[in-house]
Design a protein around this nucleic acid. Structure first.
Lengths: 332, 332
DNA sequence: TTGAAAGCGTTACCAT
DNA sequence: ATGGTAACGCTTTCAA
């Protein structure tokens, strides 16, 4: 790990000034063929790689974008991160990834670190319902997935209300009488909105909302399992269920299989997110899904746009439409 | 997006020098209570956040580690990235993520960018079999998953040979007569070693290696599907199969279900990697797995260690043991 | 206890 | 076409 060569070194050996070296590297001025070749040779022979820190300091830009999410191992994130990355790479930006483990304090700390690194933009899926630390940031900011309610922010969302509404309505269309829901935490907009969509669907079709068929749970597999179990302890049992998140879906499905229920004969099942395993289980499950990769691309494109426009634009929100994928678990 | 306050600004307003400000921020020298408080107040009121670029430039360190992988959407990566992140965060390092899409050229380009950002260490899962661009890097380097063969590098691996050996041996122990394998690309060590382990297991138990039961495939779901199909076209059909990668496993399973084969009655099935869906399919599948999160932690710890020791240490390789998880698909 | 100033590796303005 | 040099925002030595 010897000291890395600098532009000074290159200049000295090539017998020119750093200004000239800089100019050939960045193609920013005409340099005679001769000296250019000479400089390139020296760069090659020294294995010189420009120091971007110095450049960034001088230029006041870093080509660095931050990503703040709860946990990359949540199957929702990988495809969207992929979309984000592609979209950033296309524009010459790099991604710096921070995980919060859904802890708002960690989120705040990570935010500070990212800002001190002078990221040019930040994409965040909120850790919790606390969002005050984002208030006076003057770095371009886009929220996605778990977003704040305020309209002052840029967001890439999913139509949570509609997803649940569409799903529940589909189940009602099959004439199931007791449609249950495994809902998420009510302090998160994604939890609230989906439960709301479920209720609205019920109401609109003239049904009653029966709290016995509503199980409010954390978004984890274990909670999905437990929640489904409790739902099936109701008397009479629900004859259909909408699970409003991928982890809940997995847990609920697991319980129903373990307990020997037949799907959809004993209970119709409508899941959330089109995960890899949706098609290979028995029966293949119907789900409400979003185009995750495309959402990622949109998120990336939005942050790049904001960076380029220097945050002059009014805040926007893009909301993706849910899509109902019908397979065999809902009784179609 | 007004100009951000600098340490100069803080110093001027507080009526002290930048040296003193620096000292209170970093706790690097005694500063009298009075001036310290004063400075902290100014920092607070200005919303001053130190510029880490300048600091890094001066200090010659960035607290930045690079990660170069093919595709975060490959289900193998998220848990290991999580482990890596945790281990880096614990030590005050941030992660910069680059995807290569398994393209060696992109890998080389990304490598240059990362080096120009003066990352302190780099973790890579190779894009392909080309690795020459890593040769003269004097940045601490650890390979994982897809690693080069040369011993000159630090690696965190998996015992690929053993994984296939253990899996195949288990199948043989059930006395299946025609054990097939869905193997990976032979230009990758992970593909080669696993096929080799399969063959060795066969040979050691006195069986013959029959190339009709070996299907060499890219590591994708579609190839797994197609490969399994061709395997089942052999006459006689195989009565057991080991799928040597998670994507191949998914594709193969899918085909067998689609084609109506019963597992394990018609064909015993042993998969690779303990993915989320392994337990909820019918039957739950037996797999060979690795502790991915722990591997991630080990990778992170290794790179931190190298950074701290300034690459003085001889190169090491850590190899994780495969674990056989027996469920219902292998006929146990 | 505090401060002046050099230096980290670039870029870009202004000369030549 | 080329070069001298100030400046980017910080840390740290040396002096006061």
């Amino acid at each position: 790990m010897k000291k890395k060569p600098t532009m000074q070194d290159v200049a000295a050996i090539a017998g020119v000034s750093t200004a000239t070296v800089s100019n050939v590297i960045n193609n920013t001025k005409n340099v005679s063929e001769g000296t250019k070749r000479k400089i390139l040779e020296v760069i090659e022979s020294l294995d010189y790689i420009p120091n971007n820190l110095a450049k960034s300091l001088k230029m006041r830009d870093t080509k660095l974008i931050g990503l703040l999410i709860s946990d990359i191992a949540n199957p929702f994130f990988p495809p969207v991160v992929r979309g984000i990355e592609d979209s950033l790479a296309e524009n010459g930006y790099n991604l710096i990834l921070c995980e919060t483990n859904s802890d708002s304090n960690l989120e705040r700390e990570n935010l500070r670190v990212l800002l001190s690194r002078r990221i040019e933009g930040l994409m965040v899926s909120l850790a919790g319902s606390e969002e005050s630390h984002f208030e006076n940031i003057d770095t371009p900011l886009v929220f996605f997935n778990r977003v704040p309610v305020s309209d002052q922010y840029n967001k890439v969302q999913v139509k949570n209300f509609k997803a649940a509404y569409v799903g529940t309505t589909h189940l009602i269309g099959h004439d199931y009488k007791r449609v249950a829901i495994l809902a998420g935490p009510q302090h998160l907009n994604v939890g609230r909105d989906r439960l709301f969509g479920y209720k609205e669907a019920l109401l609109e079709s003239g049904r009653e909302v029966d709290s016995n068929y509503i199980s409010i749970r954390e978004f984890t597999v274990a909670e999905g399992y437990q929640g489904m179990k409790e739902l099936m302890n109701q008397d009479p049992k629900p004859d259909a269920v909408f699970t409003s998140n991928n982890a809940l879906t997995l847990g609920a499905f697991q319980f129903l299989k373990d307990a020997g229920y037949r799907i959809p004969q004993d209970i119709a099942f409508l899941g959330y997110d089109d995960t890899q395993w949706a098609t290979i289980v028995d029966p293949p499950i119907s789900v409400v899904r979003y185009p995750m990769y495309e959402m990622g691309q949109a998120i990336g494109a939005m942050i790049i746009g904001l960076v380029r426009s220097r945050g002059q634009e009014p805040s926007r929100t893009i909301a993706f439409e849910p899509e109902l994928v019908v397979r065999k678990s809902c009784g179609c």
